[in-house]
Design a protein around this nucleic acid. Structure first.
Lengths: 156, 156
DNA sequence: ATTGAAATATGTTCGTA
DNA sequence: TACGAACATATTTCAAT
């Protein structure tokens, strides 16, 4: 990702606009305008500026995975053989839909992934049948999230 | 969170609507309608159903933290004293704006948190001045994300 | 469940300050 | 930057199928 914008001034109004849209991406601009006390056109103009500066990288609908039957989240630390290709392993991990995040990390592991599963059985299948068999994976360490207490974005 | 909805049928059209809105929460319903080949009113009705079933838990603007100068993401495993109160520690962690996620986990640690920092100096300050001093925290293990390769939601 | 059409609400542009 | 007014789109409701 190329970041050209070396300086971007974000004032209190920008922050308030972003705060409201970070909570609800579909909140009407006019409603935000009214709550802040400036015109809709001004909000529109500021949002355009923020988008151009790439402060906003998009918007998402958030799906409630629990309702879809996904009850188990886990973090898996993956040890890769020295000789193996990290990017090849990532390519394989990307094919596994249950993998939500994947990081190259410092420390014991080569890779840390966050995964979501229906239940423990599903998690076991995923580890044994999908992740362990990936070429170069020597060992994994699994940490099940018993309960997620915090989930948020950076605060402005 | 109470989940009453034991069964919710999501057909291919629902999935396609959700897929498009998961990518862009502000995509006009009419545009989705046109791409699928049904009326806007039908999309509207399906979205209402999905919201009522709590399949959709909201929408968010995504802020590009890199542009704001946050270049370092890390995972921190936290060991808590046996005697200490987990929920008290979480309460303290919640006060730290750099903490984006916090999970109770199985395995070595009591808690795993995901944090975002401007740089390594900021990370060190955060660990030494904010996280380590929390009552009950005996030790932490830090894994810096050198590069995040995958970031996504569940695939429908 | 779906539709089209009407009514309402929202987004966008533009001339001006 | 900000405004308001004019214009263009989108959302929501509803009677009918």
């Amino acid at each position: 990702m190329k970041i050209n914008q070396l300086q971007i001034e974000i004032d209190g109004i920008d922050k308030e606009i972003l705060r409201q849209l970070m909570e609800d991406a579909r909140k009407p601009i006019l409603q935000i305008a009214h709550s802040i006390g400036i015109s809709g056109a001004a909000i529109h103009q500021r949002l355009k500026k923020l988008e151009e500066a790439q402060v906003i990288s998009g918007s998402k609908f958030i799906i409630n995975t629990k309702v879809l039957g996904y009850r188990t989240m886990a973090f898996v630390g993956i040890y890769l053989d020295k000789a193996s290709s990290n990017s090849e392993a990532v390519r394989e991990l990307r094919k596994i839909p249950e993998v939500l995040e994947c990081h190259y990390t410092t420390g014991n592991w080569s890779i840390l992934v966050k995964i979501i599963c229906k239940d423990n059985e599903h998690l076991m299948q995923l580890l044994n049948k999908k992740i362990q068999p990936i070429d170069g994976v020597s060992r994994t360490e699994t940490f099940i999230s018993l309960e997620q207490q915090i989930e948020r974005q950076i605060q402005l």
